[in-house]
């Protein structure tokens, strides 16, 4: 794990850290998990140093059906924060993709906040494996 820029020793974040960050992001709104927010990650990471992660929210991106921010968290990393995307009317669509480091097999979480305060959440497991068994 040291090889991928994240230390072995540090106690990795427990889900509570992640829940606390979601709470802070969501305010008092209960996150909905109805699928309005899509989180796209590979089932098995090809390279723990560079795991693609994409988020998208179905929304008109205007008025109160607009996405303000999407935050991505990696529950199993020493520090669960990954990135927060901020959108505008000119975004046209709330879609973003980047690449992140995962210390180990874990759940990746995305949380979206709409202009009307609604919160949407999605979670996806990503397996980080030793690999090398051909087939």
């Amino acid at each position: 794990v040291a090889a991928i820029g994240l230390p072995v020793g540090l106690a990795n974040a427990t889900p509570e850290d992640t829940m606390a960050k979601i709470k802070e992001f969501a305010g008092d709104k209960e996150p909905q998990t109805g699928g309005k927010l899509t989180l796209n990650t590979p089932e098995i990471a090809e390279n723990g140093n560079s795991v693609p992660v994409g988020v998208s929210v179905e929304s008109a991106m205007e008025g109160d059906d607009m996405v303000e921010e999407i935050m991505i968290l990696a529950e199993g990393n020493p520090n669960p924060d990954v990135v927060t995307f901020k959108f505008s009317e000119l975004s046209g669509e709330a879609i973003a993709e980047t690449r992140m480091r995962l210390a180990k097999t874990q759940d990746v979480v995305a949380v979206a906040r709409m202009t009307n305060g609604d919160i949407h959440m999605a979670k996806a497991p990503v397996k980080v494996t030793i690999g090398g068994c051909g087939g």
Binding site: S50, K86, F87, L90, S91, A96, R99
Partner: peptide, 23 residues
Amino acid sequence: KTVFEADIEPAISSNPYFEFAVK
């Protein structure tokens, strides 16, 4: 006019890549 922003943490991979939509 600001269209898109990313607040980045150390978990973002080296050679940061961002893909997004704009109108």
